[in-house]
Computed example of a mutant assay.
Amino acid sequence: MMTPEEFSKKYQSEYEKGLIYPICPNCRKKLHLYGISSLTQKARFDHLNQSSNCELSDPKKAKDFPSYDFNNDEIIKEYLIQENQRKVYVLCKKLLGNTKFEYCKFYELIEIANKRNIFYYKGLKVWMILYILLTLQDFKNEKKDYMIRFVIKDLLVKTLNGESLKNEIQKIEKHRTGTKTRYIEMTEDFFKSTDDSWIKFILNSERYLRKN
């Protein structure tokens, strides 16, 4: 990724004319340069409008946000191996329990992850993908009428960097009568040992992983 100084040096003329602008790698919204000519302020990219939905718009959250490696396509290649796609789908479905989870919903999560450049997180392993996908949206159990939300217990960046003593994801079920919470350990062994043989279709995530 370019620094504000590198962007200014290379594209300042086009930027001032409105012909080019930086894009947030997380929310895909336009950014503007701040403090590039200041002697007292550190140059940075700012969201044009403070976006409460983007962690990178908040300096406090941004410092704990994963960094990117846009030169590394290895995780995408590994994920696209049919067995790995199936395992990710199967485990998403398993952790959701009785909640309906169709292939179209799975592809929707992949598309969101692609737009947010999650596959380019530094330190990402293929077995981590399913847990991150589950945090991207809330899910509704139509039959029993309750909502499900997943939250990674520790900072995601710690999981990616191998700094967490125990990787866990929190499953929160919001029922009319109250909230149920349980913690699920996130492990590579759980991923590798998953049986995906019952899936009779070829999963095709590749069309949702095109370059942005």
Rank of each mutant, 00 (worst) to 15 (best):
F70R: 09
D189Y: 12
G97I: 00
N72T: 01
F65A: 08
M1C: 14
P59M: 00
D195Y: 11
K125T: 00
R44I: 06
D138C: 15
I81W: 03
L134Q: 08
N212Y: 14
A113M: 09
E111K: 13
K77N: 10
L160F: 10
F7A: 12
V157S: 06
K158M: 05
T194S: 10
T99K: 01
L95D: 04
C27P: 13
C54M: 03
S67F: 08
Y208K: 12
R44H: 12
D138K: 15
K125N: 05
R176M: 10
K61D: 09
D46T: 01
E74D: 05
Y79H: 12
K42P: 07
Y79R: 04
R207L: 08
I129Q: 02
E78P: 00
N98T: 01
D195K: 05
I118W: 09
Y15W: 08
E83A: 11
K77V: 02
L165N: 12
W127C: 02
Y68G: 07
K77F: 06
N98P: 11
E173N: 07
K115D: 14
T179I: 11
G162C: 00
E14M: 03
Y146A: 04
E16P: 11
I110P: 02
I202H: 10
L80K: 10
H175W: 13
L48K: 02
L203M: 04
R210M: 14
D154T: 04
I129F: 01
Y103E: 15
V151H: 04
Q85I: 03
F119A: 06
I169G: 04
Y120K: 12
R207A: 08
D138P: 13
I132Y: 03
N72F: 09
I112A: 12
C92Y: 03
S197D: 08
Q170F: 15
I75S: 07
R86I: 00
M128G: 04
T179P: 02
D145F: 10
P4Y: 07
E173K: 09
Q82G: 00
R182A: 04
L165T: 09
